[in-house]
Design a protein around this nucleic acid. Structure first.
Lengths: 146, 146
DNA sequence: TTTAATATGCAACAATGTAGCATTTACTTT
DNA sequence: AAAGTAAATGCTACATTGTTGCATATTAAA
């Protein structure tokens, strides 16, 4: 399977993190970038059947460690992956955004530009990071059922 | 293994949901009630070695459907279980509380009594439920590292 | 073009979760 | 107290998800 055209951006990302530009990696990046919601592990595997499953896991783990993608678990505990904001650094993610998990299509949307609440935790709890996860009906499924 | 004493409360819960009072179920309930943080699937299996794994899964699924317990996935995607608020109804949970996941001991604490934020989602998204998940250092681990 | 580091494929494995079916148990009704 | 029934359990087999070691292939640098 040939590499996609217009991969400049993805090649740059790999370069920046000293990862070799391989076809499998570029395809993962372009798949994650092509949707406005996160991609589930099973979906990824289906598209990437021609690459070894172990390799796919290694690619995803490497991307996550480098801060290129982040992982979200949906309602069923299935892993979903999405590209990070550009300000994520290695081993120090900044993904304090809202994840919306549709109960119908099960898609996970990353809604970045929302005011997030101030937290006041009980004595002794020190927060490093947080994620707000909302379940409900997404616009696509809402339209369908009307 | 004999049933624990002082199980009145747990027997009542099972009665209320028309579940038969078995030793395994009472033990699961008393284990979940004994800690102020959620219990992971592996921990649960370790304590319940003498009951079949399949049975344990069935117990947990039944409890969850009845609204007796709820499931939270921790940072690693591992299932964790905790008793619900008493106002959870069958197939209609009300667990809009905060889950605090300690990055050190990995425990998940359910912090119920917090003001939760008002959400204003983008056009078209209808929220049914939400959960706020915070990662950080819990009081126990905070003390240790001092 | 050669080299060295790194990615991949393959195989084996561990962990997690589900389902069918025979047997046992809890609870109801005599 | 005994019998009957619905439900729960144990067992087995299986599917899915994720990891690891090692040989081979590929990328990118010298």
């Amino acid at each position: 399977m040939p590499a996609k055209k217009n991969n400049y951006r993805f090649e740059e990302i790999l370069d920046k993190h000293q990862l070799k530009k391989t076809d499998a990696r570029l395809r993962v990046l372009s798949m994650l970038a092509s949707k406005n919601f996160a991609t589930s592990q099973p979906d990824l595997e289906e598209v990437m059947v021609d690459v070894d499953r172990g390799t796919l896991y290694r690619i995803l783990n490497a991307f996550e460690e480098k801060g290129i993608i982040h992982k979200v678990f949906d309602l069923n505990g299935t892993a979903n992956y999405a590209l990070c904001n550009s300000d994520c650094e290695e081993n120090h993610h900044h993904d304090e955004h809202l994840h919306f998990n549709c109960v119908q299509c099960n898609n996970v949307y990353c809604l970045n530009d929302l005011d997030l609440p101030d937290l006041n935790l009980p004595e002794g709890f020190k927060s490093l990071n947080f994620s707000l996860s909302v379940t409900g009906i997404c616009p696509k499924c809402g339209k369908k059922s009307k």
